[in-house]
Design a protein around this nucleic acid. Structure first.
Lengths: 207, 207
DNA sequence: GAGAGAATAGAACGATCGTTCCTTTCTGTC
DNA sequence: GACAGAAAGGAACGATCGTTCTATTCTCTC
Protein backbone atom coordinates (compact mmCIF):
# COMPACT_ATOMS: atom_id res chain seq x y z
CA UNK A 1 0.00 0.00 0.00
CA UNK A 2 1.54 3.24 1.16
CA UNK A 3 4.57 1.12 1.91
CA UNK A 4 4.96 -0.35 -1.51
CA UNK A 5 8.40 1.12 -2.03
CA UNK A 6 9.71 -0.50 1.13
CA UNK A 7 7.73 -3.72 1.42
CA UNK A 8 8.50 -5.15 -1.95
CA UNK A 9 6.25 -7.47 -3.83
CA UNK A 10 7.51 -10.93 -4.67
CA UNK A 11 8.25 -9.96 -8.23
CA UNK A 12 10.19 -6.89 -7.18
CA UNK A 13 12.27 -8.89 -4.75
CA UNK A 14 13.07 -11.48 -7.37
CA UNK A 15 13.91 -8.82 -9.90
CA UNK A 16 16.30 -7.17 -7.48
CA UNK A 17 18.00 -10.49 -6.73
CA UNK A 18 18.37 -11.19 -10.44
CA UNK A 19 19.93 -7.79 -11.06
CA UNK A 20 22.35 -8.19 -8.15
CA UNK A 21 23.55 -11.45 -9.64
CA UNK A 22 23.56 -10.07 -13.17
CA UNK A 23 25.66 -7.04 -12.23
CA UNK A 24 28.14 -9.20 -10.34
CA UNK A 25 28.49 -11.78 -13.09
CA UNK A 26 28.68 -9.12 -15.79
CA UNK A 27 31.92 -7.82 -14.30
CA UNK A 28 33.40 -11.30 -14.42
CA UNK A 29 32.04 -12.84 -17.57
CA UNK A 30 30.94 -9.77 -19.50
CA UNK A 31 27.52 -8.17 -19.79
CA UNK A 32 26.80 -9.55 -23.24
CA UNK A 33 28.27 -13.05 -22.91
CA UNK A 34 26.19 -13.45 -19.74
CA UNK A 35 23.35 -15.53 -21.18
CA UNK A 36 19.83 -15.85 -19.87
CA UNK A 37 20.39 -19.52 -19.22
CA UNK A 38 23.57 -18.86 -17.29
CA UNK A 39 21.87 -16.20 -15.19
CA UNK A 40 18.88 -18.46 -14.60
CA UNK A 41 21.21 -21.18 -13.37
CA UNK A 42 23.02 -18.73 -11.05
CA UNK A 43 19.76 -17.52 -9.54
CA UNK A 44 18.11 -20.94 -9.41
CA UNK A 45 15.33 -19.96 -11.77
CA UNK A 46 14.12 -21.23 -15.10
CA UNK A 47 15.12 -19.41 -18.27
CA UNK A 48 11.58 -18.43 -19.13
CA UNK A 49 10.68 -17.43 -15.61
CA UNK A 50 13.64 -15.09 -15.43
CA UNK A 51 13.14 -13.84 -18.95
CA UNK A 52 9.55 -12.81 -18.21
CA UNK A 53 10.84 -10.14 -15.84
CA UNK A 54 12.49 -8.21 -18.65
CA UNK A 55 10.99 -9.19 -22.00
CA UNK A 56 14.26 -9.05 -23.89
CA UNK A 57 17.94 -9.45 -23.26
CA UNK A 58 18.56 -5.80 -24.04
CA UNK A 59 16.03 -4.73 -21.41
CA UNK A 60 17.78 -7.01 -18.95
CA UNK A 61 21.09 -5.36 -19.79
CA UNK A 62 19.65 -1.88 -19.41
CA UNK A 63 18.13 -2.81 -16.06
CA UNK A 64 21.47 -4.26 -14.99
CA UNK A 65 23.28 -1.04 -15.91
CA UNK A 66 20.74 1.01 -13.97
CA UNK A 67 21.05 -1.28 -11.00
CA UNK A 68 24.84 -1.02 -11.06
CA UNK A 69 24.57 2.77 -11.36
CA UNK A 70 22.43 2.90 -8.24
CA UNK A 71 24.99 0.77 -6.43
CA UNK A 72 27.81 3.04 -7.59
CA UNK A 73 25.97 6.10 -6.34
CA UNK A 74 25.31 4.42 -2.99
CA UNK A 75 28.89 3.21 -2.60
CA UNK A 76 30.88 6.15 -3.96
CA UNK A 77 28.94 9.33 -4.59
CA UNK A 78 26.63 9.40 -1.57
CA UNK A 79 29.30 8.74 1.07
CA UNK A 80 31.63 11.31 -0.49
CA UNK A 81 28.88 13.90 -0.34
CA UNK A 82 29.23 13.73 3.41
CA UNK A 83 32.66 15.35 3.13
CA UNK A 84 32.71 19.16 3.13
CA UNK A 85 32.95 20.91 -0.22
CA UNK A 86 36.44 21.63 -1.40
CA UNK A 87 39.57 19.56 -1.49
CA UNK A 88 38.18 17.25 1.20
CA UNK A 89 35.34 16.17 -1.04
CA UNK A 90 37.64 15.74 -4.03
CA UNK A 91 39.77 13.45 -1.95
CA UNK A 92 36.72 11.64 -0.58
CA UNK A 93 35.43 10.95 -4.08
CA UNK A 94 38.75 9.49 -5.19
CA UNK A 95 39.21 7.52 -2.02
CA UNK A 96 35.69 6.10 -2.21
CA UNK A 97 36.26 5.18 -5.82
CA UNK A 98 39.43 3.26 -5.04
CA UNK A 99 37.82 1.72 -1.99
CA UNK A 100 34.87 0.54 -4.04
CA UNK A 101 37.26 -1.15 -6.42
CA UNK A 102 39.41 -2.62 -3.66
CA UNK A 103 36.48 -3.98 -1.63
CA UNK A 104 35.24 -5.65 -4.77
CA UNK A 105 31.72 -4.35 -4.52
CA UNK A 106 31.58 -6.10 -7.88
CA UNK A 107 33.73 -9.22 -8.03
CA UNK A 108 35.23 -8.23 -11.39
CA UNK A 109 36.11 -4.68 -10.37
CA UNK A 110 34.33 -1.49 -11.33
CA UNK A 111 31.19 -2.35 -13.29
CA UNK A 112 31.46 0.68 -15.54
CA UNK A 113 35.12 0.24 -16.33
CA UNK A 114 34.40 -3.33 -17.41
CA UNK A 115 31.26 -2.66 -19.41
CA UNK A 116 32.50 0.53 -21.04
CA UNK A 117 35.35 -1.41 -22.64
CA UNK A 118 32.91 -4.08 -23.70
CA UNK A 119 30.39 -1.72 -25.28
CA UNK A 120 32.43 1.28 -26.40
CA UNK A 121 32.30 0.13 -30.00
CA UNK A 122 28.77 -1.26 -30.04
CA UNK A 123 26.24 1.49 -30.74
CA UNK A 124 22.90 1.12 -29.01
CA UNK A 125 20.98 2.04 -25.89
CA UNK A 126 23.17 -0.06 -23.59
CA UNK A 127 26.31 1.73 -24.72
CA UNK A 128 24.52 5.07 -24.41
CA UNK A 129 23.55 4.44 -20.83
CA UNK A 130 27.03 3.31 -19.81
CA UNK A 131 28.54 6.37 -21.47
CA UNK A 132 26.07 8.64 -19.72
CA UNK A 133 26.92 7.18 -16.34
CA UNK A 134 30.68 7.58 -16.79
CA UNK A 135 30.17 11.06 -18.16
CA UNK A 136 28.20 12.05 -15.10
CA UNK A 137 30.84 10.57 -12.79
CA UNK A 138 33.57 12.62 -14.43
CA UNK A 139 31.37 15.71 -14.43
CA UNK A 140 30.69 15.31 -10.76
CA UNK A 141 34.38 14.92 -9.97
CA UNK A 142 35.17 17.95 -12.13
CA UNK A 143 32.49 19.93 -10.31
CA UNK A 144 34.03 19.02 -6.96
CA UNK A 145 37.40 20.20 -8.25
CA UNK A 146 35.83 23.48 -9.36
CA UNK A 147 34.44 24.01 -5.89
CA UNK A 148 37.86 23.37 -4.41
CA UNK A 149 39.37 25.86 -6.82
CA UNK A 150 36.70 28.44 -6.02
CA UNK A 151 37.48 27.98 -2.34
CA UNK A 152 41.12 28.71 -3.06
CA UNK A 153 42.17 25.21 -2.09
CA UNK A 154 43.37 24.15 -5.52
CA UNK A 155 45.45 25.93 -8.11
CA UNK A 156 43.43 27.36 -11.00
CA UNK A 157 46.22 27.30 -13.54
CA UNK A 158 45.07 23.85 -14.67
CA UNK A 159 41.45 23.41 -15.66
CA UNK A 160 39.13 21.50 -13.37
CA UNK A 161 38.47 19.10 -16.21
CA UNK A 162 42.12 18.18 -16.59
CA UNK A 163 42.62 17.83 -12.87
CA UNK A 164 39.62 15.51 -12.75
CA UNK A 165 41.07 13.59 -15.69
CA UNK A 166 44.33 13.05 -13.86
CA UNK A 167 42.80 11.97 -10.57
CA UNK A 168 40.36 9.64 -12.26
CA UNK A 169 43.19 8.15 -14.32
CA UNK A 170 44.93 6.88 -11.22
CA UNK A 171 41.78 5.33 -9.79
CA UNK A 172 40.88 3.68 -13.09
CA UNK A 173 44.40 2.36 -13.59
CA UNK A 174 44.48 0.80 -10.13
CA UNK A 175 41.17 -0.93 -10.83
CA UNK A 176 42.39 -2.27 -14.17
CA UNK A 177 45.79 -3.39 -12.93
CA UNK A 178 44.38 -5.10 -9.88
CA UNK A 179 41.97 -7.09 -11.99
CA UNK A 180 44.79 -8.20 -14.23
CA UNK A 181 47.75 -8.61 -11.88
CA UNK A 182 45.85 -9.16 -8.62
CA UNK A 183 48.41 -7.21 -6.62
CA UNK A 184 46.60 -4.94 -4.14
CA UNK A 185 49.70 -2.74 -3.91
CA UNK A 186 48.39 -0.77 -6.91
CA UNK A 187 45.69 0.71 -4.71
CA UNK A 188 48.36 2.19 -2.50
CA UNK A 189 50.16 3.52 -5.54
CA UNK A 190 46.96 5.13 -6.76
CA UNK A 191 46.22 6.69 -3.38
CA UNK A 192 49.72 8.15 -3.15
CA UNK A 193 49.54 9.42 -6.72
CA UNK A 194 46.22 11.16 -6.05
CA UNK A 195 47.34 12.54 -2.71
CA UNK A 196 50.59 13.86 -4.14
CA UNK A 197 48.87 15.39 -7.13
CA UNK A 198 46.35 17.17 -4.96
CA UNK A 199 49.14 18.44 -2.70
CA UNK A 200 51.11 19.71 -5.68
CA UNK A 201 48.04 21.67 -6.79
CA UNK A 202 47.55 23.41 -3.45
CA UNK A 203 48.26 27.13 -3.73
CA UNK A 204 51.48 28.23 -2.01
CA UNK A 205 49.70 29.96 0.85
CA UNK A 206 47.59 26.86 1.55
CA UNK A 207 50.41 24.32 1.25
CA UNK B 1 63.99 -21.31 -49.87
CA UNK B 2 66.58 -19.23 -48.10
CA UNK B 3 64.04 -16.46 -48.36
CA UNK B 4 61.22 -18.23 -46.68
CA UNK B 5 60.87 -15.66 -43.95
CA UNK B 6 60.45 -12.85 -46.46
CA UNK B 7 58.74 -14.47 -49.42
CA UNK B 8 55.78 -15.93 -47.64
CA UNK B 9 53.94 -19.01 -48.74
CA UNK B 10 50.29 -18.71 -49.64
CA UNK B 11 49.19 -20.11 -46.33
CA UNK B 12 51.40 -17.75 -44.38
CA UNK B 13 50.07 -14.77 -46.27
CA UNK B 14 46.48 -15.82 -45.66
CA UNK B 15 47.19 -16.45 -42.02
CA UNK B 16 48.67 -12.99 -41.64
CA UNK B 17 45.67 -11.40 -43.34
CA UNK B 18 43.31 -13.32 -41.08
CA UNK B 19 45.17 -12.20 -37.97
CA UNK B 20 45.22 -8.58 -39.13
CA UNK B 21 41.45 -8.67 -39.48
CA UNK B 22 41.00 -10.64 -36.28
CA UNK B 23 43.06 -8.20 -34.20
CA UNK B 24 41.19 -5.23 -35.66
CA UNK B 25 37.75 -6.73 -35.15
CA UNK B 26 38.63 -7.97 -31.67
CA UNK B 27 39.10 -4.39 -30.48
CA UNK B 28 35.67 -3.48 -31.79
CA UNK B 29 33.52 -6.53 -31.13
CA UNK B 30 35.60 -8.35 -28.53
CA UNK B 31 38.07 -11.19 -28.91
CA UNK B 32 35.69 -13.88 -27.71
CA UNK B 33 32.44 -12.71 -29.33
CA UNK B 34 34.32 -12.58 -32.62
CA UNK B 35 33.11 -15.84 -34.13
CA UNK B 36 34.80 -17.95 -36.76
CA UNK B 37 31.89 -17.37 -39.10
CA UNK B 38 32.06 -13.61 -38.61
CA UNK B 39 35.80 -13.58 -39.23
CA UNK B 40 35.40 -15.80 -42.28
CA UNK B 41 32.85 -13.38 -43.68
CA UNK B 42 35.15 -10.40 -43.02
CA UNK B 43 38.06 -12.07 -44.78
CA UNK B 44 36.00 -13.56 -47.62
CA UNK B 45 36.83 -17.12 -46.67
CA UNK B 46 34.80 -20.15 -45.68
CA UNK B 47 34.46 -21.05 -42.02
CA UNK B 48 36.26 -24.35 -42.41
CA UNK B 49 38.99 -22.93 -44.64
CA UNK B 50 39.79 -20.31 -42.08
CA UNK B 51 39.42 -22.69 -39.17
CA UNK B 52 41.98 -25.09 -40.65
CA UNK B 53 44.70 -22.49 -40.11
CA UNK B 54 44.34 -22.66 -36.36
CA UNK B 55 42.67 -25.90 -35.33
CA UNK B 56 40.66 -24.37 -32.52
CA UNK B 57 39.18 -21.05 -31.54
CA UNK B 58 41.55 -20.77 -28.62
CA UNK B 59 44.56 -21.21 -30.89
CA UNK B 60 43.13 -18.50 -33.12
CA UNK B 61 42.81 -16.21 -30.11
CA UNK B 62 46.35 -16.93 -28.98
CA UNK B 63 47.68 -16.26 -32.48
CA UNK B 64 45.69 -13.03 -32.57
CA UNK B 65 47.18 -11.90 -29.25
CA UNK B 66 50.68 -12.68 -30.50
CA UNK B 67 50.03 -10.84 -33.73
CA UNK B 68 48.76 -7.80 -31.84
CA UNK B 69 51.79 -7.97 -29.55
CA UNK B 70 54.10 -7.85 -32.55
CA UNK B 71 52.21 -4.85 -33.87
CA UNK B 72 52.46 -3.12 -30.51
CA UNK B 73 56.19 -3.68 -30.39
CA UNK B 74 56.57 -2.36 -33.93
CA UNK B 75 54.39 0.69 -33.31
CA UNK B 76 55.40 1.67 -29.79
CA UNK B 77 58.45 -0.07 -28.36
CA UNK B 78 60.73 -0.18 -31.39
CA UNK B 79 60.35 3.51 -32.37
CA UNK B 80 60.86 4.63 -28.77
CA UNK B 81 64.06 2.65 -28.60
CA UNK B 82 65.48 5.12 -31.10
CA UNK B 83 65.35 7.83 -28.42
CA UNK B 84 68.42 8.11 -26.17
CA UNK B 85 68.23 6.45 -22.78
CA UNK B 86 66.94 8.61 -19.99
CA UNK B 87 64.05 10.95 -19.75
CA UNK B 88 63.91 11.26 -23.55
CA UNK B 89 63.10 7.60 -23.91
CA UNK B 90 60.55 7.68 -21.12
CA UNK B 91 58.81 10.48 -22.92
CA UNK B 92 59.13 8.71 -26.27
CA UNK B 93 57.49 5.57 -24.87
CA UNK B 94 54.55 7.53 -23.49
CA UNK B 95 54.18 9.63 -26.59
CA UNK B 96 54.30 6.59 -28.85
CA UNK B 97 51.73 4.87 -26.69
CA UNK B 98 49.31 7.78 -26.94
CA UNK B 99 50.05 8.17 -30.63
CA UNK B 100 49.30 4.50 -31.23
CA UNK B 101 45.96 4.95 -29.55
CA UNK B 102 45.17 8.21 -31.32
CA UNK B 103 46.10 6.95 -34.80
CA UNK B 104 43.82 3.99 -34.20
CA UNK B 105 46.33 1.37 -35.17
CA UNK B 106 43.47 -0.81 -33.98
CA UNK B 107 40.06 0.65 -34.76
CA UNK B 108 38.78 -0.01 -31.23
CA UNK B 109 41.80 1.49 -29.47
CA UNK B 110 44.62 -0.32 -27.73
CA UNK B 111 44.25 -4.05 -28.28
CA UNK B 112 45.60 -4.96 -24.87
CA UNK B 113 43.48 -2.48 -22.97
CA UNK B 114 40.39 -3.92 -24.64
CA UNK B 115 41.25 -7.59 -24.29
CA UNK B 116 42.63 -7.33 -20.76
CA UNK B 117 39.27 -6.09 -19.54
CA UNK B 118 37.56 -8.84 -21.47
CA UNK B 119 39.74 -11.66 -20.14
CA UNK B 120 40.87 -10.47 -16.73
CA UNK B 121 38.39 -12.76 -15.01
CA UNK B 122 38.60 -15.73 -17.37
CA UNK B 123 41.48 -18.00 -16.42
CA UNK B 124 43.26 -19.72 -19.27
CA UNK B 125 46.13 -19.38 -21.70
CA UNK B 126 44.61 -16.41 -23.52
CA UNK B 127 44.33 -14.42 -20.32
CA UNK B 128 47.86 -15.48 -19.37
CA UNK B 129 49.31 -14.21 -22.60
CA UNK B 130 47.52 -10.87 -22.39
CA UNK B 131 48.68 -10.43 -18.83
CA UNK B 132 52.24 -11.26 -19.79
CA UNK B 133 52.23 -8.68 -22.55
CA UNK B 134 50.93 -5.89 -20.33
CA UNK B 135 53.33 -6.89 -17.60
CA UNK B 136 56.25 -6.63 -19.97
CA UNK B 137 55.06 -3.25 -21.23
CA UNK B 138 54.94 -1.88 -17.70
CA UNK B 139 58.29 -3.46 -16.87
CA UNK B 140 59.86 -1.88 -19.90
CA UNK B 141 58.47 1.53 -19.01
CA UNK B 142 59.67 1.08 -15.44
CA UNK B 143 63.11 0.11 -16.70
CA UNK B 144 63.28 3.24 -18.83
CA UNK B 145 62.36 5.30 -15.76
CA UNK B 146 65.12 3.57 -13.79
CA UNK B 147 67.64 4.52 -16.45
CA UNK B 148 66.47 8.11 -16.31
CA UNK B 149 66.82 8.07 -12.54
CA UNK B 150 70.29 6.53 -12.76
CA UNK B 151 71.28 9.28 -15.18
CA UNK B 152 70.16 11.85 -12.63
CA UNK B 153 67.36 13.05 -14.89
CA UNK B 154 64.50 11.97 -12.64
CA UNK B 155 63.99 12.23 -8.91
CA UNK B 156 64.61 8.99 -7.03
CA UNK B 157 62.36 9.78 -4.11
CA UNK B 158 59.51 7.98 -5.87
CA UNK B 159 60.08 4.43 -7.07
CA UNK B 160 60.46 3.77 -10.77
CA UNK B 161 57.51 1.43 -10.53
CA UNK B 162 55.19 4.10 -9.20
CA UNK B 163 56.40 6.67 -11.69
CA UNK B 164 55.71 4.18 -14.47
CA UNK B 165 52.30 3.50 -12.95
CA UNK B 166 51.41 7.18 -13.04
CA UNK B 167 52.61 7.81 -16.58
CA UNK B 168 50.90 4.70 -17.90
CA UNK B 169 47.68 5.69 -16.11
CA UNK B 170 47.39 8.84 -18.18
CA UNK B 171 47.97 7.04 -21.45
CA UNK B 172 45.51 4.28 -20.58
CA UNK B 173 42.87 6.76 -19.46
CA UNK B 174 43.11 8.74 -22.67
CA UNK B 175 42.67 5.55 -24.67
CA UNK B 176 39.64 4.51 -22.65
CA UNK B 177 37.98 7.90 -22.65
CA UNK B 178 38.49 8.44 -26.34
CA UNK B 179 36.85 5.13 -27.14
CA UNK B 180 33.87 6.05 -25.02
CA UNK B 181 33.46 9.79 -25.54
CA UNK B 182 35.19 10.14 -28.91
CA UNK B 183 36.69 13.50 -28.00
CA UNK B 184 40.33 13.62 -29.16
CA UNK B 185 41.03 16.39 -26.66
CA UNK B 186 41.79 13.72 -24.04
CA UNK B 187 44.99 12.89 -25.87
CA UNK B 188 46.17 16.45 -25.32
CA UNK B 189 45.19 16.20 -21.67
CA UNK B 190 47.18 12.99 -21.33
CA UNK B 191 50.24 14.47 -23.04
CA UNK B 192 50.17 17.51 -20.77
CA UNK B 193 49.70 15.37 -17.69
CA UNK B 194 52.65 13.18 -18.60
CA UNK B 195 54.83 16.12 -19.57
CA UNK B 196 54.03 18.00 -16.37
CA UNK B 197 54.58 14.94 -14.21
CA UNK B 198 57.97 14.29 -15.77
CA UNK B 199 58.94 17.92 -15.31
CA UNK B 200 57.89 17.86 -11.68
CA UNK B 201 60.15 14.84 -11.15
CA UNK B 202 63.25 16.49 -12.60
CA UNK B 203 65.85 17.14 -9.92
CA UNK B 204 66.26 20.78 -9.00
CA UNK B 205 69.62 21.12 -10.70
CA UNK B 206 68.23 19.73 -13.98
CA UNK B 207 64.94 21.62 -13.96
C1' DG C 1 53.51 -29.81 -66.94
C1' DA C 2 52.71 -33.60 -63.85
C1' DG C 3 52.21 -35.01 -59.35
C1' DA C 4 52.14 -34.33 -54.13
C1' DG C 5 50.69 -31.85 -50.61
C1' DA C 6 48.98 -27.59 -48.94
C1' DA C 7 44.98 -24.65 -48.88
C1' DT C 8 40.19 -23.96 -49.15
C1' DA C 9 35.32 -25.14 -49.49
C1' DG C 10 30.77 -27.60 -48.41
C1' DA C 11 27.81 -29.92 -45.59
C1' DA C 12 26.56 -31.54 -41.42
C1' DC C 13 26.96 -32.50 -36.06
C1' DG C 14 25.42 -31.38 -31.25
C1' DA C 15 25.17 -27.54 -28.18
C1' DT C 16 23.64 -23.19 -26.84
C1' DC C 17 21.64 -18.83 -27.85
C1' DG C 18 17.29 -15.49 -27.34
C1' DT C 19 12.61 -15.90 -27.65
C1' DT C 20 7.63 -17.66 -27.76
C1' DC C 21 3.72 -20.21 -26.20
C1' DC C 22 1.24 -22.59 -22.94
C1' DT C 23 0.64 -24.47 -18.45
C1' DT C 24 1.25 -24.63 -13.57
C1' DT C 25 2.09 -22.64 -9.14
C1' DC C 26 2.04 -19.06 -6.03
C1' DT C 27 0.52 -14.21 -3.80
C1' DG C 28 -2.00 -10.85 -2.25
C1' DT C 29 -6.69 -9.04 -1.60
C1' DC C 30 -11.67 -9.29 -0.50
C1' DG D 1 -10.61 -19.38 2.12
C1' DA D 2 -11.85 -18.36 -2.65
C1' DC D 3 -10.57 -15.99 -6.65
C1' DA D 4 -7.78 -13.07 -10.03
C1' DG D 5 -3.66 -12.01 -11.54
C1' DA D 6 1.16 -12.21 -10.97
C1' DA D 7 5.13 -15.19 -11.06
C1' DA D 8 7.54 -19.15 -12.55
C1' DG D 9 8.29 -23.45 -15.19
C1' DG D 10 8.49 -26.70 -19.46
C1' DA D 11 9.01 -27.51 -24.03
C1' DA D 12 10.03 -26.13 -28.31
C1' DC D 13 11.44 -22.72 -32.35
C1' DG D 14 15.06 -21.06 -35.64
C1' DA D 15 19.62 -19.23 -35.62
C1' DT D 16 24.31 -19.41 -34.66
C1' DC D 17 28.13 -21.33 -32.28
C1' DG D 18 32.75 -24.35 -32.59
C1' DT D 19 34.12 -28.34 -34.71
C1' DT D 20 34.58 -32.52 -37.85
C1' DC D 21 34.77 -34.97 -42.12
C1' DT D 22 35.22 -35.26 -46.83
C1' DA D 23 35.83 -33.32 -51.32
C1' DT D 24 37.74 -29.93 -54.28
C1' DT D 25 41.01 -26.46 -55.84
C1' DC D 26 45.26 -24.36 -55.86
C1' DT D 27 50.75 -24.06 -55.26
C1' DC D 28 55.01 -25.20 -55.41
C1' DT D 29 58.78 -28.29 -56.72
C1' DC D 30 60.98 -31.55 -59.84
Amino acid sequence: MYNRTIVLTKGERTRKAILDTAAALATQEGLDPLSIGRLAEATGMSKSGLFAHFGSKEELQLATVDHAAAMFVAEVIAPARAAPKGVARVWALCERMIDYSERQVFPGGCFFAATSFEFNNRPGPVRDRIEEMLRSWLSYLEHAVEQAQAAGELDESLSAREIAFQLDSFAQASNAQFQLFRDPAVFGAARRAIHDRIQSLRPARAA
